[in-house]
Amino acid sequence: MELLGQQILAGIATGAIYACMALAVVMIYQAIDHLNFAQGEMAMFSTFIAYQLMLWGLPYWVAFPITLIVSFIGGVLIDRVVFKPIHDAPILSHVVVFIALLAILNSTAGFIWDFTVKSFPSPFGSAPLFGSSLISAHQAGMIGVTLLLLVLLFVFFRYTRIGLSMRAAAANPASARLVGVRVGWMNALGWGMAAAIGAIAGILIAPVVFLEPNMMISILLYGFAGAVLGGLTSPAGAVLGGFLVGIVENLAGTFIPVIGGELKLPIALMLIVAVLVFKPSGLMGRTVVQRV
């Protein structure tokens, strides 16, 4: 029983990473209605920007906001420069452009900062929390930041005019345009916010997994899984889903003999698929009804 509790706690700690990423995934899904395959690489690139700023001697709390602003602008630029011209292209073309972005960002980061593994500082320190070896101060801080972000996003989407416009632009672009929402700029704003949240995720994750151009690939998978599990339409669901994926992954690795250790990731994903078969809109998502 104690082992179970410990494993769940450890799962929540890793789940915080996935929750952070899932939140960024859902953000961009809300804005553009697609899953962004380049999300992980965008976060990685932002983290490298923070790393470079600190290398130039800026203190952490100066580098952090600058990175967020740069990432926000970068996200807006990606939308305006890359995606606006192909707005009417089929979905699969968009997917291919996501893949292209992924390749470009990954290769450029590798070219500028090379592929060696770098350590990244944590604002919370890496001491164990309350003397427990299962969860460190950094991981606790990460959970805190994720929850704080969630609350901020909730308030933004629920109570601000611009948040409402963004939701309208994503849900029904044609009608939103008719009532005066500038749909194009709402998309760009969504991209910018997703890039900034991705930057926060990257900066929080880097002290745990270390910084290198390929650090995000497997994390993005878990982030997707968490987002879909929780419901792509619900930021809170995404965070919950991220934590659940972390817990399931840890429990499968511990309690399922032989296969569990080797197939940790697939088992987590298969469980999620099983959930989806029974509840396709995710745990907290809205069911979209199709009109004939």
Partner: peptide
């Protein structure tokens, strides 16, 4: 050599621009 991924990505994006289908 170093930027092969980036070149590949740019070719891909250009292709989608010029021939979206």
């Amino acid at each position: 050599k170093g930027l092969s991924g980036a070149v590949y990505g740019i070719i891909l994006i250009l292709l989608i621009y010029l021939m979206p289908t």
